[in-house]
Amino acid sequence: MSFWMKYGLKKSPWVFHVNTGACNNCDIEIVDCLTPRFDVERLGVKLVGSPRHADALLVTGAVTAQAKPRLQEAYRQAAKPCVVFAIGACACDSGIFMPGYHMVGPVDKVIKEIDPNAIIAYVPGCPPKPEAMISGIVAALKAI
């Protein structure tokens, strides 16, 4: 990545939220980050309505067979470079739903099928607290 690409990615990361079979828990904690107590918008993190506007995808939930093509499509549509955040234990390694017959694997496996060089960051927890999500986003952006 060039200097300007990194610079653009780090400043005010806009995020798009993809639920791929989560239990709503991580999702409400993501929305919690945007509401007054945590209010990440003051740091420039904004939830957008389309992956085409997003610098990062916040993916929650173990990926189900039916959600897999939709997640891959959302990743294809996202402007590159794009950071994928696997939020929650399910997104990181399928978690408690691993034995399910309908699971196609954790988020990193599904994303790497279409882009082996994808940047993936992990925020474990069930659900991760909003503080953990914010520190995960900061850590990932620092590492770039």
Binding site: N25, D27, T64, Q66, I96, F97, H102
Partner: peptide
């Protein structure tokens, strides 16, 4: 899109473990 086969997984777990699984049916 969100079907995870919880009833199936639940039948492979012990009675003490099932509450942890089904509290994750819905986070709310």
């Amino acid at each position: 899109f969100n079907h995870r086969g919880i009833e199936g997984i639940s039948e492979t777990l012990q009675f003490d473990q099932v509450p942890y699984l089904i509290s994750r049916i819905c986070g709310i």
